[in-house]
Design a protein around this nucleic acid. Structure first.
Lengths: 120, 120
DNA sequence: CGGTTAATTAACTAATAAGTTTAATATAAA
DNA sequence: TTTATATTAAACTTATTAGTTAATTAACCG
């Protein structure tokens, strides 16, 4: 995996971790607060591990306050994802470019054949 | 992992797969075309597997044309990612809401302390 | 038909991920 | 100083992922 963006995507590829981020978007929270909604499904150390994944991906920051570890959302890491997505937006925001590209390749590929209008 | 969005994020958590999507954004391509840039680093079956991951995530569609398998970008799956990101955008597009939330939690947490204006 | 090209399948290995339970650390509070 | 609370660490298990090589399928072409 290795690279930063891959690490970020991998961190987001888990519903528990996404729920944690969502919670943190409302403000700081410490580990046991964040864990509470999941303690029926998994143990506290499991949540700690999820937090570590998020931290390594740079999506949250953990600080110290007595025996608590307040966590804070670090949304700049999400910006990298957003930037990566940018060029693809044209594909779902109705775009002429998209259709353009598509048709170009189709006509190239099927130049030698006669039927080129019956596939879906 | 299980859910759709997680599967999509997981599929994106690999630079080879992202490169494949990028290539496909320029138009259809069959498997060996897509594999070509990676054949120094990995085998053809490895690429086949990456394509399968992308296909299962709904990010590409593979069709049949004689012995070729033209692949096409399916960017609607990326829209789901984009939608998920939406609420977080406020955090990096300089937003008053964000600062607002942040300060609220900070002042709550540090009510008993005196210094609460020297963080960043 | 026989060979070539395109792609997949099968069987396997090694590394990583996600969870567990038990134990340890550190701070606060009585 | 003891006890309770918050969190992490260690050791382990199981499942999944990413890759390999060798074999197979399928379609085309001379």
């Amino acid at each position: 995996m290795s690279d930063q963006l891959s690490q970020t995507f991998a961190a987001l590829a888990d519903p528990t971790r996404r729920a944690i981020l969502s919670k943190l978007s409302l403000g700081e929270a410490n580990v046991s607060d964040l864990a509470k909604p999941f303690l029926k499904e998994m143990s506290l150390p499991a949540v700690t591990k999820h937090l570590k994944v998020l931290e390594k991906a740079g999506l949250i920051t953990k600080t110290k306050e007595a025996q608590w570890r307040p966590c804070k959302l670090n949304a700049e890491g999400l910006k990298d994802v957003s930037d990566w997505m940018e060029p693809y937006k044209a594909f779902w925001e109705e775009s002429f470019d998209r259709l353009d590209e598509y048709l170009k390749t189709v006509t190239n590929k099927k130049k030698k054949r006669k039927s080129h209008g019956n596939k879906k």
